[in-house]
Design a protein around this nucleic acid. Sequence first.
DNA 1: AGCGGTGTGTCAAACGCTTGATACTCATGA
DNA 2: TCATGAGTATCAAGCGTTTGACACACCGCT
Lengths: 151, 151
Amino acid sequence: MTRKDEEPVGSGALDRVTWALRRAELAVQTLKEQRLRPLGMAAAHYTLLMSVHSEPGLAGAELARRLNVTPQAVASLVARLEGRGQLERREHPRHRHVQELHLTDAGREALRAADQVIADIEHHITEGLGPEESAQLRTLLDQVSKAVRNA
Amino acid sequence: MTRKDEEPVGSGALDRVTWALRRAELAVQTLKEQRLRPLGMAAAHYTLLMSVHSEPGLAGAELARRLNVTPQAVASLVARLEGRGQLERREHPRHRHVQELHLTDAGREALRAADQVIADIEHHITEGLGPEESAQLRTLLDQVSKAVRNA
DNA sequence: AGCGGTGTGTCAAACGCTTGATACTCATGA
DNA sequence: TCATGAGTATCAAGCGTTTGACACACCGCT
């Protein structure tokens, strides 16, 4: 319970937990982007394809909720990936306005290649940390997510 | 040392460490953005102002290196913040082409208000985690950053 | 049967950031 | 001295995302 008004501003602001979090995430994301680029895929594309793969037939808005982004963000990605023939928009049987999202064969193949890259990165990180530290890190990160959610 | 080729693609991809990392960072960043909005400041602005505050007189390119972004990203932020009168570009005494970055009084005041908000969030998180877990999380995150840097 | 909500998709504008390319300023060495 | 190189700033184009606003389709209620 240290007083925070004593310091005018941000003396120790650079070693806050959220900064470490930001740095780590930025580093990981940048690495993914670099490794994925040769495959002609952005990290956001991989995330979307993976989500559709794990829950096929989802609507765009629902998918947006899963990914914590806006429906528009999903829509623009879907448009791009559909144009590339990796994603497919089918008409929902009951709601004509709604469209289900499905992977094409090309999409599955692209995802498989991309996942190889991502899994490698993941493996390199968890290897550097060790198994129990990795599990603990995941636990702590989930606690952060939860703490922030009901802030 | 489990074989990863056994699974066609991403069976357990959703509970990877990097996903937990992404979710946590996204949640934190979103919360910061929400809380900062009433002050008319984006999280990126806060980050930049804080950096300039901690190391005044830095050049844009040097600052970009500190923040792990491109010089252009810094330039556009600087332009915006300068237009708002919170940041100042002075001519470098030796290099005429280079410009030092300094906070104005208005910038210092805006930063103070913003830092209050950020410090609150940080405090809420570390409080929910506990002191030794917070320290451990920071350690683990720094390990991740380091592991990624020399990937 | 008709009506209002709720959910969904989409258009427009803006922001933060990236890559690629270009121009400028200083320092170093042939 | 003067050319080459390193560091810096800036322009242009594009991507992914957000907010705001709008239109459309279903569902449940009166």
